[in-house]
């Protein structure tokens, strides 16, 4: 069915109908607003909870190793001591022998100048221990 211009509502009348529509716009109810705010809070709390593990990630194996030794300062001390040991082994042991008063190394090759009992406390006690059969 074709429309003639007379069938059409005038622009003025249409504007009035739009105005009536704007005046009758439904507003959200209190209950709807409460539901929307509850959703907002739920999403917000879920987001914050999900963000927490990201804030404290699981430490790497290397970091956990360092922590087990007592932290990075202890690790630095350990490295220093290790390097010092390597260095002492590398430089001439004669100097160490001098410092130890000749106790560490024999002056002539092949013969130890000390026995096990020499460096254990109370050689008598140890002998007695052997004699009693370890009781």
């Amino acid at each position: 069915m074709s429309k003639t211009e007379q069938d059409l509502l005038s622009n003025i009348a249409l504007d009035e109908i739009f105005a009536a529509g704007r005046a009758e716009t439904p507003a959200p109810s209190e209950a709807l607003l409460a539901r929307i705010l509850a959703d907002a809070q739920g999403v917000q709390e879920a987001g914050l909870a999900a963000a927490r593990p990201r804030a404290a990630p699981r430490p790497s194996p290397w970091a956990r190793f360092a922590e087990a030794l007592g932290g990075w300062t202890s690790l630095a001390g350990l490295v220093t001591a290790t390097l010092a040991g390597v260095w002492l082994g590398f430089v001439s042991p004669d100097q160490l022998n001098t410092l130890s008063g000749g106790l560490l190394l024999p002056e002539t090759g092949g013969t130890a100048i000390y026995a096990l009992e020499d460096i254990l406390p109370g050689d008598d006690g140890l002998a007695a221990f052997y004699e009693e059969g370890g009781q």
Partner: peptide, 15 residues
């Protein structure tokens, strides 16, 4: 299109 459909109800709508 609105003018056409509402135009058919002009008396009912006070026009």
């Amino acid at each position: 299109a609105l003018s056409a459909s509402l135009g058919q109800r002009r008396e009912e709508l006070g026009y």
